[in-house]
Design a protein around this nucleic acid. Sequence first.
DNA 1: TAGGTTAGTTTAAAGAGTAAACATACTGAG
DNA 2: CTCAGTATGTTTACTCTTTAAACTAACCTA
Lengths: 394, 394
Amino acid sequence: MAAEAPLISPVLASEVNRARIMQALYDTGPLSRAELARLTGVSRATIGSITAQLIDNGLLAEGDSRPSSAAGGKPSRPLWFAENAPPIASAHLLPGTVEAALISAGGTLLARTRREYDVHVSGGAPALEALTEALTEIRAAGSAEPMGIGVAIGGMVDTDSGSIVHIALAPALDGLPVAEHLSTTLELPTWIDVHPRVQALGDRWFGQGRGRAGFASLYTGEALGVGLVIGGSVHRGPGGTGGEVGHTTVDLHGKPCHCGRIGCWETIATHTWLRAEALEKGLPGAATLTAGPLARLAARDHPHAAELLDEYARNLAIGMANLHQTFAPGLFILHGDAVAAGETLRGRIEHQLHRGIPPHPAGPPQVAFTNLDDHATLLGAAGLVLSRTLHIAI
Amino acid sequence: MAAEAPLISPVLASEVNRARIMQALYDTGPLSRAELARLTGVSRATIGSITAQLIDNGLLAEGDSRPSSAAGGKPSRPLWFAENAPPIASAHLLPGTVEAALISAGGTLLARTRREYDVHVSGGAPALEALTEALTEIRAAGSAEPMGIGVAIGGMVDTDSGSIVHIALAPALDGLPVAEHLSTTLELPTWIDVHPRVQALGDRWFGQGRGRAGFASLYTGEALGVGLVIGGSVHRGPGGTGGEVGHTTVDLHGKPCHCGRIGCWETIATHTWLRAEALEKGLPGAATLTAGPLARLAARDHPHAAELLDEYARNLAIGMANLHQTFAPGLFILHGDAVAAGETLRGRIEHQLHRGIPPHPAGPPQVAFTNLDDHATLLGAAGLVLSRTLHIAI
DNA sequence: TAGGTTAGTTTAAAGAGTAAACATACTGAG
DNA sequence: CTCAGTATGTTTACTCTTTAAACTAACCTA
């Protein structure tokens, strides 16, 4: 329990309970009042009164009644988010590009758009403009006013002030007050967070992390990042620090990293490394190689391809083993480049990971690929709004 | 919030509130009802009724009234743990040795003892016997029955089953059901956990981590271990995994570790490394060197001593920087060997740590030495009982 | 001694969850 | 077709807890 947690008053308790009902729905899918009562361990009467409020507020709606079981009984009426419940506006700010989407309260993608902007304009006005335009466009696609805006940033941010700290490929945006600008311009509550953490929120609310207390959401490809879910909530250090797992030292006597240090995990497990190795091994398309094509080369028994795939798996597993030894998330959900390589790579990563850690009765950690395709981040930005709006600290 | 959290009923709310009052006292020290009311944001009436129960139960007692401020007013009566409140029995199981202590509810050490045992007897009966004897002895030193037993284990454990998984220097104890044995033999609820995590609980309840939402408690010396406090609670992976930070890879092309892998943090930041380097540099007493004597050598301008101290600080900082990059605890509390080297080493570690991480508006992480002397683990074992008994997940 | 200030308690009221009974709506055997 | 059985959802009387406001207690200063 966080330090200085307020005492629980009846009204706070009911607020928390309302939020937990919502969360149980997100974690499990549509549920009848009786199912909710069993799941949460309270009486059907209580669930009835709580859900009545949520239905009155237009957040939830009763679905068509489901057939009774063979034993008989009154058919249950599943509850789920109402058609016209407030949706959520989400965006992903990348160097030069903005993606935005409107997500329904239930987690379906209602609309999606993108904008390009000039990264070089100091002050970052074009980025804010692109964000505002994209969000205005998708906002118009919904029938109700969004409950808020969530933005994922491909760089370091200060979640307290809602501003960008540093984006390596877009230094002109450093210090940009994204949340402040959007909340005043669009008159909606706005939250921002770093990309891997938002991605983890996507897994937590809508993906394989649903209902789980702990897991690690890993992004691989041109960079490495991690979002850690601990105790059901995504972990944030002071001001939103943490998750910069790409720049942890794994090879003290290795190659210099672009960040200025030596042997960061990124020096052995990103595209830059993969392409350099591929070039050395004389693989075709080395300069633009990614994990997917590499796995296909390996499947076709191309010389050295399987070898390189193994090394890539081993290098990814090194950092994951470090995470396991420290945090023991129990589950790694992989996003980005690695996913395209499919089971070939997943199995190798899992194997290497299990080799690199001592046995424990709790069993070895699992390695999974995301099932959210490329929506993970935009869904996660919606999860960011949900986490902040419902008063639960996910 | 953890998945599947139960809904809050009035009676659960009051239970949680009682626990939070207790925690506020631990975090802040003796407090009057009015101060508690201000701290927790509830009315004085509420605090009055909650504390009345705790006083009736014999847990809390009113201290002598404190003088009013210059503005006048009725003098406040500080509340603190009662003299005869149930104490806590705590123990630390090491290869060959058991330490045990009786800790008052308020966190003072009432009695302390130790036992030796034969590590080589397979089945581990002597260890259990030593634990039982030591705990029986210190139990007799208290006026009231202890509220429970907390045991720190110098090795890998399964916190779910309360048994030892593996202790490197005492393989005869593998699988030993410590909690089960003690709880039936001594008829007291018993919990066990790994040493660094227990140490972190000591910091959280009684040391520099008091009242903090997040920090890392690091043990240095013959081994490296970490206990992570996140959201006010100590972090446990499934079954109590995690914290094995000594065996995270930092030097992929480094020396082999006794665990079978290459370049673990322990290969560059423990006594083994320090002594090998000292030998190479021809420092006196190299074979038994620790950080304290090394710092004194460095202070006396002994050739190479300052150099070695710098390297030691740098090597410790490498793993700490990795922890900061992933988890950003904001504060590192150091225990063990390093403490004896004093500010000389602390400053160097902090300097090296700050060099190794990118700047952020939230400010750099702090490095502190424990103020709990060698009691940290035994106090932490008491904290383990407190965490489990009060229904808060610290 | 009076007025101001702070601590702690009392009391009536409001809000929330609960248990038990009840109404509703289905299944399936006879 | 009826009726017992079963499960869902709602109503009602009740308990528990916090709260606001008034009140008492104990101190300070002028």
